[in-house]
Design a protein around this nucleic acid. Sequence first.
DNA 1: CTGAAAGCGCTTACAG
DNA 2: CTGAAAGCGCTTACAG
Lengths: 333, 333
Amino acid sequence: MVGIDEVARRAGVSTATVSRALSGRGTVSAATRARVLAAADELGYVVSAAASSLATGRTRNVGVLVPLLDRWFYAQVLSGIATRLSPEGYDLTLYNLPDAHAPRRDVLARSLRRNRVDAVIALSVFLDDEEVAELQRLGKPVIAIGRQSPQLVALTVDDRAVARLATAHLLELGHTAVAHIGESRGRHGEVHVPTLRRRGFEQAMTDAGIPVHGDLLEPADFTIDGGYRAAGRLLDRADRPTAIFAASDEMAFGAIFAARERGLRVPEDLSVVGVDGHEMSGFFALTTVDQFPHAQGERAAEAVLAVLRSGDAPEPASLAFELVVRNSTARPA
Amino acid sequence: MVGIDEVARRAGVSTATVSRALSGRGTVSAATRARVLAAADELGYVVSAAASSLATGRTRNVGVLVPLLDRWFYAQVLSGIATRLSPEGYDLTLYNLPDAHAPRRDVLARSLRRNRVDAVIALSVFLDDEEVAELQRLGKPVIAIGRQSPQLVALTVDDRAVARLATAHLLELGHTAVAHIGESRGRHGEVHVPTLRRRGFEQAMTDAGIPVHGDLLEPADFTIDGGYRAAGRLLDRADRPTAIFAASDEMAFGAIFAARERGLRVPEDLSVVGVDGHEMSGFFALTTVDQFPHAQGERAAEAVLAVLRSGDAPEPASLAFELVVRNSTARPA
DNA sequence: CTGAAAGCGCTTACAG
DNA sequence: CTGAAAGCGCTTACAG
């Protein structure tokens, strides 16, 4: 690899001047700059990340924390982030945060502290207070997607409103036996997305004068299979619901598979609504609340870039969502 | 951030000794080592990536080149890679290689040359000769997944064999009108996965004495929607096939949607086989050739770690695949 | 506008 | 087994 001194020699200037010409910081005469650029180009010089970042303290790298790499939603957001970071010359380093405590601490207390990133985007990871503190101790901008902790600045959709919108759609069609598939316990209080969706569901039902009893809430883990099994439990009951609001499209797909397996037609015998705007929702004719995950990633990347440029603290922001009505919902029979 | 000299002061030794004690390289007495470890732990010291990598030339970071972040297959492989890299203390930096020429050059000639990675895993990206040369000029180990260039060491499945296996399954069931959805042009010759799958299909058909005419080959772009449209074209013909071999599960899903839309039953009226082992293939009852993408990622990561440890050149290897028969295939009516 | 020099925070021969 | 010192390849006050 050719170094800065080779470029300096070829251009007949000092390394300081090469550095100034290439970075655009400091003043260099037009003629000198041109000579330096030509020399760098001819030699194929690229600045060494390690040397540059040791000298400046900046890395031009953003860390992204993801709970799972192979869920559609996260892949979408990640893709959105990469889309906006790459043209700005920023790299993206991935940190997979598993459920287990030990490896999580390893990522937060070790990997991230190696000083390899200028900022962190935390994607829907549920951090406990100690972990959040660890993250903030980095002294670097942190942007969360999805509310994860009261202490983290986040880009969020209004998850209660999302759930109310989906539920209200079913109620307006005339359904009264509406069940919800999602998280039913409230461990994470005011910042837990699945819990907020369940609360929004409950609120819409209550507002419509329909009491919500525990039977209408089936817990599932946001996978297709989880949705399939939860829906199976609901549909095998004597008093099965006529509509299901699933807290994610993948769980909604599972519900559709469960219905189909039982000879129930969607939407004639069962209406289903999801959340996300999954790429396959159109094929399933699934009515869903789209939350534009790719755009969420882009927004997060933009927020990070803005903070890095301005030095200002990041600001929380609210993300768009939209009900997309397709053919998985209809009036009850 | 606390530095090595603070640790040295606290432990009452030189920074050289701290470095040796922490890295395990060089000799340190047990007592000194214990004191250093304790001091480092108390201070929460973590070595600076930039300083360490400038001094050693090693980064403990692996670059992964991906064409698309939001395809299921790539997300799986990526997840497999991360799974194996993370416990070894290696970070993973993502480089998205789009189709356009300019940004690709930017990644290969700029980003990767910033010296931020010790090795590169290239995931199903089709590089032209110049790009491969650029990659090799890095002087770092490169492992490809999927055959991409004759010059790159790769982990590959035998794609012709995969296609023959899928096609033979349909032929054994008694189908003779078998169509293929995939890539139909052979730009990339001997190293292009879609082309190899098409050739395997043609070979199986020819071996069975069935001539393959162009009508049986419908090009598609490996997305669900592409498969849906390609299958639509096949199924709208007067002499529609009784079976379809799709070169990916996602295209197979699209084919199933296309059949369903036309009132054709799978497998009674149409048999469908895919390739990949997609997480949803079970729900679609799709017969497929599983190629275990998560395991492919793990294998690639292991190969990279082995090369990094031994200093030996990487070696090509062959990956497993397996026909999984489900309910999307049956004897023709 | 430009250069000499110090410094970023480590690692590693070298000497003892 | 341990320390002093040079060096990794840049950047940036400082001086001119």
